[in-house]
């Protein structure tokens, strides 16, 4: 399926992302799907820092970066302004933030934007820690990951809390569209971007994007890890339409789930885990998958 925007790159090459950065792959696909009639806000973070260094910009669509915690509020203002000033409502309004800017510091602004029913699609590019500031843990960091503020050690397993289920929390705002996606399944990602933008009201897209620098994996393993996350059940792909958060649809169900060990062992942030720890993580993933019905 080739959309009309397939030819045009809206995130110019020459940005300053790390080699193998999952966000770059995600952004390329997302912006192609959104097309040039779009306006974006971006929270402070890797995406912003690597694409907007004055006097250059990698953005071929209008972009505004204001601060860390308010991409969704800035987007609310844009949406209200366009609506008020007699625009036809055909311009897509996208709000981008990382996991820190979505799960943690940006959560209040996001919840407010959802509640007020702005026609904005918020896209969280999740690399599971504060990567821009140097791999500090946040509420998206999974259990067992060693980060610079949850280091593994004699007395520490690394991060000792489970990942916050942000997409389910977003969906619980009864918004018309909430979904999870990953860069390993670009068609699925694009389809979801399309649905999110077409939704009549706020939409949320949680995009899983591995980070070679923070996860300490090979830059050629990014897509492989994104796929393994789905194949092991660590990251579940689903969507909820029309606010039906209790009736989510699994969009990619692995025929046979691979052991989580295959996912964990490729990343040095999990290198310290013992067999016992891995078993515990496996058990938790099994329980979660059961909840999701597979």
């Amino acid at each position: 399926m080739m959309s009309e925007n397939e030819e045009k790159e809206l995130l110019a090459s020459g940005h300053r992302m790390c080699a193998g950065c999952g966000e770059g792959t995600a952004m390329r696909a997302i912006l192609k799907e959104a097309g040039p009639n779009s306006i974006a806000t971006v929270a402070t973070g890797c995406l912003e820092v690597t694409t907007t260094a004055y006097p250059q910009t990698a953005w071929e669509i209008p972009l505004i970066h204001a601060a860390f915690e308010n991409a969704a509020s800035v987007a609310s203002g844009i949406e209200a302004a366009l609506k008020q000033m007699d625009k036809k409502g055909e311009t897509n309004i996208l709000s981008f933030a990382g996991d820190g800017g979505t799960f943690d510091i940006g959560f209040q602004a996001l919840s407010g934007m959802f509640e007020r029913k702005h026609n904005v699609t918020h896209i969280c590019l999740d690399n599971e820690a504060y990567m821009n500031t140097g791999i500090q843990r946040c509420s998206s960091t999974p259990y067992g990951a060693s980060t610079t503020t949850s280091p593994s050690g004699k007395e520490s397993i690394g991060e000792d809390r489970p990942k916050k289920p942000i997409a389910r929390i977003a969906g619980a705002h009864d918004i018309p569209y909430a979904a999870t996606a990953t860069i390993a399944y670009i068609d699925d990602l694009k389809k979801k971007v399309n649905k999110a933008l077409k939704a009549d009201g706020p939409a949320f897209l949680h995009v899983f994007a591995p980070c070679p620098t923070g996860w300490r994996h090979g830059s050629d393993d990014t897509i492989e890890l994104a796929r393994l996350a789905v194949e092991t059940g660590v990251f579940v792909l689903w969507e909820a339409e029309d606010g039906e958060i209790c009736d989510i649809k699994i969009t990619k169900k692995p025929k046979e789930r691979k052991p989580v060990k295959e996912y964990l062992k490729k990343q040095r942030r999990f290198a310290h885990l013992t067999e016992e720890h891995i078993e515990k993580i496996q058990k938790e993933v099994d329980e979660k998958c059961e909840q999701y019905g597979f």
């Binding site: 306006i39 806000t41 505004i64 204001a66 601060a67 915690e69 308010n70 509020s73 800035v74 987007a75 609310s76 203002g77 844009i78 949406e79 209200a80 302004a81 366009l82 609506k83 008020q84 000033m85 209040q108 602004a109 919840s111 407010g112 509640e115 007020r116």
Partner: peptide
């Protein structure tokens, strides 16, 4: 008054939305 009022969830978001609106060419 023909205007759009955004009943934001905080003053931080009030100024953030002003910034988004003003950058879009609105009088905020």
């Amino acid at each position: 008054l023909d205007a759009s009022m955004i009943r934001v969830e905080s003053e931080h978001s009030a100024m953030s939305a002003c910034i988004g609106a003003s950058a879009s060419g609105a009088r905020a």
